[in-house]
Design a binder for these strands. Structure first.
Lengths: 188, 188
DNA sequence: TTATTTAACTAATAATCATTAGTTTTATAC
DNA sequence: GTATAAAACTAATGATTATTAGTTAAATAA
């Protein structure tokens, strides 16, 4: 049984995803929890806290995952494979939170938004380095690095949005199929 | 010189993209136009009209583009290439409107949302058919159709978000590089 | 110039918002 | 069973919201 606080965070995440942060009222969240809006404040500090906590939790999962991959002894092409796996794993574990990470970070207050963007930049830099190494070491073609990076990231980031309709798919299958599409290419 | 109405639509699109539809107030739009919020209503009917019109304009561009490609005599692999071109062209022409199409359709009122989703479904179906044909005719490997489809669509749809930072890139270069990443594959 | 339309303004409305204060009920500890 | 703490409630606050009504200024047509 989840603590009430945890339940509130889950309810918020679901609603934030459905209607967006700005369009979700504390009443909406309260209603989903079968209580009055004011009562929420016995458990949480503010609406912002809800957004920030949910968001930072996922962000940290990514940061930790990236750190583990970076410091591993794997060859760069295996690291790339591990990155795909990381995204798939976290997406499957919690698509709602993932949706927030991708779409609602704009509603963080100015201070936390800056912080979030700097973390995201770091993550993208690490990703870029691994991709670059893959090209350098001859695992990948030398196509435009930025386009390759954002092409891969776009797909990985948007997995949550169609995974909801495709739940009958194992994590491993998903990883393998994404690897084919993103890395090996579709052309015969 | 753009009509005042057109200017308002542009201001709205920019702000909607920056802060999201729900978090953008009529005051915000008015401020950007150097006028009072109430005066906006001499030119437009409602906030919803702003969202709906912007959104449907881009949606129609896509629908028309798809119709032209569908009815063309091109082989399926060339159709696929044309689809990439269509997305790139419309994205470059107006990244703000594209952002709305991808991210803010949720804020359409119930009736128009249903309509929008049905249009989007049709578009995805047409896209899927072309992709399937490419596989059938041996241009593409027979990987999972859904994953291939959404992998391509994710990247094409998100192009707007990083094109803003990469403006010094010609349409043709972008199309070619995306084709390489999405279709030919990165693996050596 | 005068008449008419267009588009700006001010002011007000009624709704909704996040949040606080104060109170009552419920659950826990002794 | 009584005391204490946790968590629900009601009520209110003050801000912001989209939009309307009514009025004035600016631009256009005659």
């Amino acid at each position: 049984m989840l603590s009430k606080k945890a339940q509130i965070f889950n309810a918020a995440a679901t609603l934030f995803r459905q209607k967006g942060y700005a369009a979700t009222s504390m009443q909406d969240i309260a209603e989903k929890m079968d209580m009055k809006a004011a009562s929420l404040y016995n458990h949480i500090d503010s609406k912002q806290e809800l957004l920030r906590t949910i968001l930072m939790d996922v962000a940290n999962d990514f940061i930790e995952g990236m750190a583990a991959i970076k410091s591993s002894a794997l060859p760069s092409n295996e690291k790339l494979k591990e990155l795909i796996s990381l995204h798939v794993r976290l997406t499957i574990a919690n698509p709602d939170n993932m949706a927030l990470l991708i779409g609602d970070w704009t509603h963080l207050d100015e201070t936390h938004k800056k912080n979030y963007l700097s973390l995201r930049d770091n993550y993208e830099n690490d990703f870029r380095k691994i991709l670059k190494q893959c090209m350098k070491e001859g695992y990948l073609k030398k196509v435009d690095l930025e386009i390759a990076l954002f092409s891969i990231l776009s797909t990985l980031r948007w997995t949550y949005s169609w995974y909801s309709k495709q739940k009958n798919r194992s994590q491993l299958d998903l990883e393998a199929d994404l690897y084919k599409c993103l890395i090996e290419g579709l052309k015969k």
